[in-house]
Design a protein around this nucleic acid. Sequence first.
DNA 1: CGCGCCCTTGACCAGACTCAATATTAGTGG
DNA 2: CCACTAATATTGAGTCTGGTCAAGGGCGCG
Lengths: 236, 236
Amino acid sequence: MAYTEHDNVASGVVIPLRTSDRDVEWREFARSTRVKYQRLEQHSVVFYEGDKADRVFEVIEGAVMLFKLLPDGRRQVVDVLGPEDVFGLPRGRDYDCNAETLSRTTLRVFDRRDAENRTEVQGHLARCLTAQVEKLHDHAVLLGRKSAFERVASFLFRCVPACQQLDCLGDQRTGGESVIVLNMTRQEIADYLGLTIETVSRVISEFKRKGLILLEKQDRIRINNLCGICRLTGTH
Amino acid sequence: MAYTEHDNVASGVVIPLRTSDRDVEWREFARSTRVKYQRLEQHSVVFYEGDKADRVFEVIEGAVMLFKLLPDGRRQVVDVLGPEDVFGLPRGRDYDCNAETLSRTTLRVFDRRDAENRTEVQGHLARCLTAQVEKLHDHAVLLGRKSAFERVASFLFRCVPACQQLDCLGDQRTGGESVIVLNMTRQEIADYLGLTIETVSRVISEFKRKGLILLEKQDRIRINNLCGICRLTGTH
DNA sequence: CGCGCCCTTGACCAGACTCAATATTAGTGG
DNA sequence: CCACTAATATTGAGTCTGGTCAAGGGCGCG
């Protein structure tokens, strides 16, 4: 239990609830059950594939990536989770993938049996899972059918807070602009998009050359032309 | 509502329940609510992406594929569903993908509001969705990180009834054998595996040449060496 | 200032795609 | 039952996208 040492918020501590946290039952549940909070540094392991799945997690703040490894070391990041996302619910006894933080992260930790036995929170879980299934459907399209350019453009586009799942909303003439923070290394992006680190780098450089983006820092990108990126995603 | 004409089993008709249908609440729900049954021929459309999502479906018998299309016509099959799988639960108002039968199929049809309002069935839905998420994780690894050979081998291996999610269980010397029915055209397989029809065909021919498999019909394949195929999946 | 870690860039290579021709299968009607 | 047709699958040749391998650059940190 590698994370016990990080448990620095005792149960009972009040965390302000956002209004977007709509599910009343889930809120009640979080208050009533034995719940812990974990603060984790960047690149901390939450659990490994194959670990006994006795805890369920909810991202309060920060970001977590889920990934799987093939025996020869190839890695695929299967999901990137943010606030309000729930993870750590496998079908069987063990976790089906690895979970690692991408940035400094706060998690809410439940006992798995609590989450599974309380009928009043199943609805919330079902809705979370539904959202995840939709995201995975989109990602399957990206991995199965999109070119390297389209993959990176899609990735950048989805990092734009206002464009999470909307269409391009930038000004049609200027193209609209936005600054995004990736919180992922090139390697993590590559493993998420099913590419190599070199290909990701080349595509980003090409976008830069075309004036679509500008690298303020390596993981901090200014998008100068949202519409331009959006058009390259292949989706619109 | 293209499928209304196929509704040929009125509510109240008793359909034998299998013992694997473990969720008592779900069974009760299926009995108590206004539920219909649909018999569909091969390659019938259940719904289109963007249709108003007012119905939830459960596969009773047969197989259904879910797929998405890009504006230029590229297609990705995001999931292939069998008996007991539930589909048609989007986050928003509309279905996020298209659903089509792969073979002659019987579906149970629920009203979406019924499924969402009944707290007693949310647990069942959460479990179904959990299983789907795990399957989608595996598929992301396949699409993002596996070679054409590994993809086709993985696909064939997962079509073996006894190997659904088990390891290879064939005799180590002979390799074990099994006959599988694909119920999918080469095009559908290609769109599921993120390949082209030609690549799928070439890989299958290569497996045939190596004596690993034997085509009894185009969609009926005898696997002569289960272990051999299993070893080529990249997963073990 | 220098070390180490990422990231970028270039040259080359290979696996999968494209386009085109042919073969096979399934379905239809005589 | 067989001939004919349309749909599907296979095979080949050539191309191209993205991977591999290797060298160099930039940035943060001690």
